[in-house]
Design a protein around this nucleic acid. Structure first.
Lengths: 153, 153
DNA sequence: TTGAAATCAGACAAATTAGTCTGATTACTA
DNA sequence: TAGTAATCAGACTAATTTGTCTGATTTCAA
């Protein structure tokens, strides 16, 4: 049970936050990212390419290339990332998997779960990458264990 | 993104509800279950065996055998099922996958998600199989599409 | 203009999850 | 007591997700 998002989605979120923490206009390479983030190098490449295909990031090839946000961090929500990677099936599907739920034959949890799901959705939509980047820069917050941080290139 | 529970867990929940709808003391065979529930026959067997190993169900071999609840339906919560199948990692793990979150280096969503997660947990703990079985017996509720229901043995 | 450093593309491998098959064992019934 | 219908166990296959590898292309800088 990967908690709520797929692992790929977790990686994407963490990557986006990392990129958003840097001054706008700077490019971030896969190498730098995976040095800070404990995401497998090549997998990271794939994920970032995917995000740029989806319009969340932009990329530049070449020596001074890398990835950057396609829009200002204030204008990208957490939901945008999740939606780009995992889709938004959790909006629709029955939490217990009953096929007719939401179809006039709602399951016993339908309403309760609907309320919670909506709260989760609002949480995702209200958090911008700017918020996240800002929060996670504060002292108590930290993206990685020190051990890993020290071992970066 | 399998919404929230693994598919196996969804099957387990649906099966448990089905069994709980029958009068106490009756045995339910895999054949009957999969006739009503659209769960692959052999996979269903595995899942039910697993649930009985975990103490949620009991089983009896032989001609008139099958599976039944190990305890009264009022005493089995939805959380018991989920916990038996998927575990309860969602209690602990960071929703965005940050390794140090919950360790003094909380992520930006930690508190908000904690509140929602607790509500989800309460929802699971408060729903007994008896509640579920009762609710899903009401007219508007229905476990399966008619088409499937009609094609049962 | 050449070399280095980056993305990009796609095939491949490994791990996990989902689903299938077969044969053994058990218990009821005729 | 023999046959049937069920669980049980475990090996196997298939599908999905995760992760790896290689080579091509692009861009910059010496």
């Amino acid at each position: 049970m990967s908690i709520f998002f797929s692992r790929q989605c977790e990686y994407a979120i963490q990557s986006a936050i990392y990129i958003a923490q840097k001054p706008a206009g700077q490019w971030t390479t896969v190498k730098e990212l995976t040095g800070h983030l404990n995401v497998p190098y090549h997998f990271s490449g794939k994920i970032l390419q995917n995000l740029s295909r989806k319009g969340v990031l932009i990329s530049m090839k070449g020596t001074r290339g890398g990835f950057a946000l396609a829009k200002p961090a204030r204008d990208v929500t957490l939901f945008d990332i999740v939606d780009a990677v995992d889709g938004s099936a959790f909006h629709k599907a029955c939490v217990m998997g009953f096929p007719r739920c939401g179809d006039g034959h709602e399951c016993s949890l339908h309403d309760q779960w609907g309320i919670l799901r909506e709260k989760i959705y609002k949480m995702l939509v209200k958090k911008s990458l700017h918020d996240l980047a800002h929060d996670m820069n504060k002292p108590g917050y930290q993206i990685l264990p020190d051990a890993l941080k020290n071992s970066l290139k």
